[in-house]
Nucleic acid binder design. Structure first.
Length: 259
DNA sequence: ATGGCAATGTTTCATTGA
């Protein structure tokens, strides 16, 4: 069977719910990881998504952060994990659920603000805890997907102007090293398993007509365990969603898995 | 040309995002 797994930073699910419902009706997505829902759990749009054919698992808070996993598989999500067990945190940034043999981890990695900020130190510590926890998860689950907003552009080709961005938050060496540490666990960047167009990005600043000018970064990723990577037949960025009316500043990434 | 946009809160701007 073929399974479509997507990740999208919606930048407020309250604002983007119509976009999401339209998108779900359009694409045949089986599992969808969402970030920056910015909703407390009692305000998550469970009925609307249920009407669209999706179960919801979510971990949210007011104003900031918030992650969710939607699924339209017959199997109920199991073994649900909210946040990193080895990193006590009020911020809702991680959610994991199992769908039969498939382990799905939805992550909203801290932004870091700027390299001299304490938020940047928090980002690196968070990523360290993520890698540590994932080592165990990968040992337990042969088929694992880590999908989300990593807030890291791994390589120069993932940045529209790598010279200008060099050393800046989202493209600093320690962040890129943290990303490589995830790959060192055996995870594969699904997008780079395939030939891709140049200037492929997932985020564009709202300002300065950045989207039209293709001033973007590729910071949203789907990483796959080795056995899942072997079953991945495609990975694309759904750019259309960034060009619509009142868009999120992120575009979704979609991976096709042949299980 | 990197600012000057967008969402949230309980607002009248500050904060955060990336």
């Amino acid at each position: 069977m073929t399974l479509a797994l997507a990740t999208w930073n919606v930048n407020s699910l309250k604002v983007r719910l119509p976009h999401l419902l339209r998108w779900l009706a359009q694409r045949q997505l089986d599992i969808v990881c969402l970030q920056e829902t910015k909703l407390p759990d009692d305000r998550f749009p469970v009925p609307e998504l249920q009407a669209a054919g999706y179960r919801s698992v979510f971990a949210g808070q007011k104003t900031y952060n918030g992650v969710a996993i939607l699924s339209r598989l017959p199997t109920e999500p199991a073994d649900i994990q909210v946040n990193l067990p080895n990193f006590p945190d009020e911020q809702r940034r991680l959610l994991a659920a199992s769908f039969d043999g498939l382990r799905v981890v939805c992550a909203y990695v801290p932004n870091g603000q700027s390299v001299d900020s304490d938020k940047y130190a928090y980002k690196l510590k968070w990523l360290e805890a993520l890698a540590h926890w994932l080592r165990g998860e990968l040992a337990r689950h042969d088929q694992l997907a880590l999908a989300g907003d990593f807030n890291i552009a791994p390589e120069a080709r993932d940045v529209h102007d790598p010279v200008r961005w060099d050393g800046q938050v989202l493209f600093s060496e320690p962040e890129r090293a943290a990303f490589r540490a995830l790959l060192d666990l055996g995870l594969k960047d699904a997008f780079r398993l395939f030939e891709q167009p140049e200037r492929s990005y997932t985020w564009w600043d709202y300002r300065n007509l950045a989207f039209r000018r293709q001033w973007g970064l590729r910071i949203d990723h789907i990483l796959l365990s080795p056995s899942l990577a072997a079953q991945c037949s495609a990975c694309t960025i759904d750019v259309a969603l960034r060009g619509c009316e009142q868009p999120s500043d992120h575009a979704p990434v979609i991976a096709t898995l042949s299980l």
